[in-house]
Design a protein around this nucleic acid. Sequence first.
DNA 1: AAAGATGATTCACA
DNA 2: TGTGAATCATCTTT
Length: 252
Amino acid sequence: VDEDPSDPQLMRLDNMLLAEGVSGPEKGGGAAAVAAATAAVGVGADNSIEHSDYRAKLSQIRQIYHTELEKYEQACNEFTTHVMNLLREQSRTRPISPKEIERMVNIIHRKFSSIQMQLKQSTCEAVMILRSRFLDARRKRRNFSKQATEILNEYFYSHLSNPYPSEEAKEELAKKCAITVSQVSNWFGNKRIRYKKNIGKFQEEANLYAAKTAVTATQAVAAAVQNSQTNSPTHCFCFCFSPCLFRFFRFV
DNA sequence: AAAGATGATTCACA
DNA sequence: TGTGAATCATCTTT
């Protein structure tokens, strides 16, 4: 897919989350984080997500991740100082070595970092869910506008002898039709094969578009004729033998 | 609901 | 790598 929907922001978040190696699933704990993160992936009843919607939800997830992370950080610090205070109190009744304190702090930090890992994992999952739903939504087929098909058909039937638009032509068509270049490519791919399979079925359409382009060509000729009366007459000759006109006269 | 139309995807090939 | 062909999935028409 050349129009990759993967948002650079999303990739950054993914990479950030995955780079540190998310640990294996540890059940229990971090449930609140999972709930918070996945809650951000709510979708409409029709299960479709607009691009802006998608971005909004993505930043929502990111925000949840960061606030949760901050909360854990704070909780970790608070708990550590709490334990330190307890140890200090205990030191009045029994001797406590610095090594024991260090060990305690280590245990606490390990515990909290494992919780943070779970947070990362659940955020990752939430992003994945969001992304897959977004992709599903994009997968949904929607017909092009009438105007767009008109433009595409005009090109197709006026280039019937070689209906292979160049990359530049595709880009221009895409721009005119407000679709992507790959959609233009798809359209032409489908059109060529379907036209070839049943030329008879498309005859009417072909005539229609040949006539349509002929009319514009005729108008151009008329303009050229008028122009040639005041300027050089060579232009008129060129217009008269345009392929569109030629085809038009063959059909009618 | 069935049939037809149409945009997208997949795969093979030159 | 662009294309043809087959096919899928969804939209539109009947």
